[in-house]
C-alpha cells in the first residue's frame, strides 16, 4: 500500500489504473490535436483546466467517500445550494472573502448533517444523500423563487479569471494543491491507512479499533466543505446562480471516480487515478465540443464509457 521507493518504477497492481489512464490521456490529446487545429493552444488548455477545476475538487472528496465504501449523490444540488447561498450573501453586500468563508461553513454544516445521518443514525450514504438531494434542490427553489441570482462585483468576477503566468487558472492551481494533499493523506498518513482498511472491509476496520463512525462523519463534512469551496469558484466563473445550477454534474463526478478505478465493491484506484479520470473526461468533453458533436451524443458516449468501465468482465462466480 505504501508507495515503493521513488527509485523503483511503481508499476504494480495498485498503480496499473493510473498508468492506463495516463496513456489514455496522452492518446486523447494526440487524437484531438490532430482533428482540431486549435486543441493544443494555451487558450484551450486554460478552458479545460477551468472547466474541470470546480468539479475536480468535489471529485476528490467524493473519491474519499467511495474509498471508504460509501457514496454521496447529492453533489449537484449541494453545489447549487452553496452557489445560491454565496450569491445571496454577495448581493446583500457581504464582503467577498467573508462570504466565501461562510459558504464553506454552510457546506460543512450540510456535510455534517449527512455525516450525522450516516454515522449516527447508521443510514446508508446512498439513502441519506438521496434525501438531501431533493431537500437541497427544494431549498434552492425556495431561496431563489425561481429567479437567477446575479449581479456581482467585478472584483469577485475577476477571481474566476485569475491566472498565474497567464496559463494556470487559480481554481486549477487550488485543485492541484488539493490533489497533492489528498494523495499524501491517503498514502502516507494514518488516516489514509484507516480509510483504506475501512474501504476494504468494514468489520475488520471496526475490530482494528478504527473509529469508523468518526471517519465517516469527517469525510462527509469534508465533502460538504469542499462543495462550498468549489461553489466559490463556480459562481465567480458563471456570474450567476439559479435554482437549477449544479444539475448534471453528478454524472461527470461519478464518471471520474469510476474511470479512476474506484468502485463501491472494492477500489483499484487511488487519488491520482481519480484525478486522471477527471482530466480524461474533461478533455473528452472539450474535444467533443470543439468537434461540434451534439451534446446528446456526448452524453450517450459518456454513458456507454461508464458502463464499459464499470462492467465486471470477470465472471468468476455466477451469482
Amino acid at each position: 500500500m505504501m508507495k515503493k521507493s521513488p527509485f523503483k518504477f511503481p508499476f504494480n497492481e495498485k498503480t496499473r489504473v493510473t498508468w492506463v489512464l495516463l496513456a489514455l490521456l496522452v492518446g486523447m490529446v494526440l487524437v484531438f490535436s490532430w482533428t482540431s487545429e486549435s486543441f493544443l493552444s494555451r487558450r484551450n488548455f486554460l478552458n479545460i483546466m477551468r472547466q474541470t477545476a470546480e468539479t475536480g475538487m468535489i471529485v476528490i472528496t467524493v473519491a474519499f467517500l467511495v474509498l471508504s465504501r460509501d457514496i454521496d449523490i447529492s453533489m449537484g444540488s449541494a453545489l447549487g445550494f452553496c452557489c445560491i447561498v454565496l450569491g445571496l450573501m454577495l448581493k446583500s453586500g457581504v464582503d467577498m472573502y467573508q462570504a466565501g468563508f461562510l459558504t464553506i461553513l454552510t457546506g460543512a454544516v450540510m456535510g455534517a448533517f449527512s455525516g450525522f445521518l450516516v454515522a449516527g443514525l447508521k443510514l446508508q450514504g446512498m439513502v441519506a444523500s438521496a434525501g438531501l438531494l431533493i431537500l437541497l434542490r427544494g431549498l434552492c427553489y425556495v431561496l431563489t423563487k425561481g429567479y437567477p441570482v446575479s449581479g456581482f462585483s467585478d472584483e469577485f468576477l475577476a477571481l474566476g479569471r485569475l491566472r498565474f503566468w497567464n496559463v494556470l487558472p487559480l481554481s486549477f492551481t487550488a485543485l492541484i494543491v488539493i490533489v497533492v494533499i489528498a494523495h499524501i493523506i491517503m498514502e502516507k498518513t494514518n488516516i489514509g491507512l484507516q480509510i483504506t482498511v475501512l474501504g476494504a472491509n468494514r468489520t475488520t476496520a471496526k475490530f482494528s479499533g478504527i473509529g469508523v463512525d468518526r471517519i465517516k462523519f469527517l469525510l462527509f463534512t469534508a465533502n460538504g466543505m469542499m462543495i462550498g469551496f468549489a461553489s466559490f469558484f463556480l459562481l465567480s466563473r458563471m456570474a450567476s446562480a439559479e435554482a437549477t445550477t449544479g444539475q448534471g454534474y453528478d454524472l461527470d463526478i461519478l464518471a471520474s471516480c469510476l474511470l479512476g478505478g474506484l468502485s463501491l465493491s472494492g477500489s483499484k484506484g487511488n487519488i491520482l487515478s481519480v484525478f486522471l479520470g477527471l482530466m480524461n473526461i474533461g478533455i473528452m468533453r472539450n474535444g467533443f465540443n470543439q468537434l461540434a458533436i451534439p451534446a446528446i451524443y456526448q452524453d450517450i458516449v459518456l454513458g456507454v464509457v461508464i458502463a464499459l468501465n464499470a462492467a465486471n468482465w470477470v465472471r468468476a462466480r455466477r451469482e
Binding site: S36, S38, S41, N47, N289, Q290, A292
Partner: peptide
Amino acid sequence: INMIEDMLSKG
C-alpha cells in the same frame, strides 16, 4: 458556457 468557451478557443 463551457461549450461556447471551447468553440471560442477553436477559433
